[in-house]
Design a protein around this nucleic acid. Structure first.
Lengths: 346, 346
DNA sequence: CGACGATTATAGAGCGCTCTCCCCGTTGTG
DNA sequence: CACAACGGGGAGAGCGCTCTATAATCGTCG
């Protein structure tokens, strides 16, 4: 914006019509004589006009922007967000969320504003950002349970859609997976492969997804007559998967099947098994969860429970758009079904 | 924004002062009587006022937003961006870029708008976005050489800063690494460990970073009297690293040291070596490049050439800010030095 | 042939904010 | 004691756009 950018007024003068007419041509509203449309369009090209977003937003009261918020409990230290962002992106999960969201937004010429909300001040920034009208709504992905952000947004009456049911109850729309059913699929697969001495590296048990995947898995095992499943709790990270598997293996060396709460931990499980000379899947079968990119790069490639993250993310964006446009006022939930993807690890 | 949000006018009435005074208090401009400041501040709290971004932008002619653009040659098919975004985030590099950018922006209450520009229409969207004043400038990270975006932005006079020198010459600021020097460090390390039958899995040779890392490595080897280094070209991905190493090993089974163009490929190299029963680093020493998160999760942990991506990204953001505020008008380049990080693989 | 819808263009009033003038009162100075 | 200088506040003109009310134009029918 070095030299003055052309305005509607300039285009109107060039085309010999009024501002309003040019506006109508641009927004494709109401009847405008085709000849005049053509003249206006030519004037737009010749002036190199680009509508000013701020001016438009001011009157339409819409930013045409949404915030994509990664929320959770980080160090609660401000400034530590660098580490938080890095941790977030280490999980291929977020790339898939972004991919799904962008896939939905882009055909609408919209682009997400990326925000991290791991501390109280960061959460305040998010709320303020929305209250200022900088974005019309928020897509919230929480990394930890007890995230207060969804409730805060709901209290402010700001449009928001969460990935996964918020642990802190709030009248907010969300998109989620039938985690129990996913755990069940994992159990069935291991049973099918004849495994009975199974163990699990669960996700964090204070996170619903962690709990329910475990619950579903346990149910499946119990139904098949396996009453007890050793559990080592992990934190959905590679390192925590490694640590958990080490513990598990030390206490239960006879294990012949492992269900990991996500693929990242499953990768850790495989590494530990390899280090201890156990072959996967011959000695120990491993089932992961998510069907993320690591499921493919892991050796061996993981048999895993697929979570259609991209579609779920796109669904969040659609839901948010409906809330923003007022097509939908009541909070809504959309639950997706998991699917077993068989590869080599089980 | 369900019920009408309070405006400056409302706050002014509440505080019994003029709009201008409230504005001054909020923006901390000029001296305002401390008593009045206090009254105004109380009025802001009691009304729950939040300044409207669009209105402010309209007059200041600044969006207080920047675009973070991941640009490159994707399928050139629109709609294939889902795959592009996923591929982008599969590389831990981008997480680090985001982390660095956000680290700089957040203390300034700014947040990046995430955009992908892998097709012609997507690039047009980016240019239009900036021309509309939706963002004040762009941070561009190109995944492929010959990216036309930097030149387009420069031609439009839009503020932009690139990660790495644009392959298509353009008067644009950029931040880069002394790649040759990095390649040299890798060579020195392998020589130090007594390796002479070395080979390299290079990055794509049409990308300056790939070329120069290789060039520096070759120089280092030549200087030490090693005249020939077998090369297998990769594409900076895990899979390409695996394929390249397979080729290399088939033709040069006697290899005792490998320099990989980045950590992701180094991981592939390690996997192939393990599969072929070669121990790292005893039989074959491996040096990676980047010091990304995979350098730590790889087994064994990688000795690698560190690229300070976070600092580089923060530096891009700072440069862009200077361009936007007019503190700096000439394109500028900032080159960072690489650093050897010794772990277990070499 | 005048009147009356129907259609299409224009005029102009804001949207909420910043910022340049301008004014007023107090203090300092010759 | 008159006047300049200065600190601190208000009035009001836009920023560029959308959109409603209004005017102009045309065809058509009583």
């Amino acid at each position: 914006m070095n030299r003055q950018a052309p305005t509607l007024e300039d285009v109107a003068r060039e085309a010999g019509v009024s501002r309003a007419t040019v506006s109508r041509v641009i927004n494709g509203i109401r009847n405008v004589d085709p000849d005049i449309q053509e003249v206006v369009r030519r004037a737009i090209d010749s002036t190199g006009y680009a509508p000013n977003r701020a001016a438009r937003s001011l009157v339409t009261r819409r930013a045409e922007t949404i915030a994509l918020v990664v929320s959770g409990a980080g160090g609660e230290q401000d400034g530590a967000q660098g580490e938080f962002a890095a941790r977030v992106f280490a999980d291929p999960f977020f790339g898939r969320v972004v991919s799904g969201v962008v896939g939905f937004l882009r055909p609408r010429s919209m682009h997400p504003v990326l925000m991290f909300a791991e501390s109280e001040s960061a959460r305040t920034q998010v709320v303020d950002y929305l209250r200022q009208g900088s974005a019309d709504g928020a897509l919230v992905v929480s990394t930890h349970a007890e995230d207060p952000l969804p409730a805060r947004l709901a209290a402010e009456g700001l449009p928001a859609v969460c990935f996964a049911r918020p642990a802190v109850p709030a009248p907010v729309s969300f998109v989620d997976l039938a985690h129990r059913q996913g755990g069940l699929l994992a159990a069935e697969r291991l049973l099918e492969r004849g495994r009975r001495r199974v163990a699990t590296v669960s996700g964090p048990l204070d996170v619903p997804a962690g709990q329910e995947r475990l619950g579903g898995f346990r149910d499946g095992m119990e139904r098949a007559g396996v009453p007890y499943v050793p559990i080592a709790e992990g934190g959905f990270t590679l390192a925590s998967g490694v640590a958990a598997m080490e513990r598990l293996l030390a206490e239960h060396p006879e294990v012949d099947g492992v269900f990991a709460g996500n693929d990242l931990m499953a990768q850790g499980v495989c590494q530990v098994l390899a280090r201890h000379g156990r072959r996967v899947p011959q000695d120990v079968a491993v089932v992961g969860f998510d069907d993320s990119s690591v499921a493919l790069t892991c050796s061996p490639p993981l048999t895993t429970v697929r979570q259609p993250v991209e579609e779920m993310a796109a669904s969040m964006a659609r839901l948010l758009e409906e809330h923003i446009h007022g097509d939908r006022s009541e909070p809504t939930s959309v639950i997706f079904d998991p699917e077993l993807v068989v590869r080599e690890s089980a």
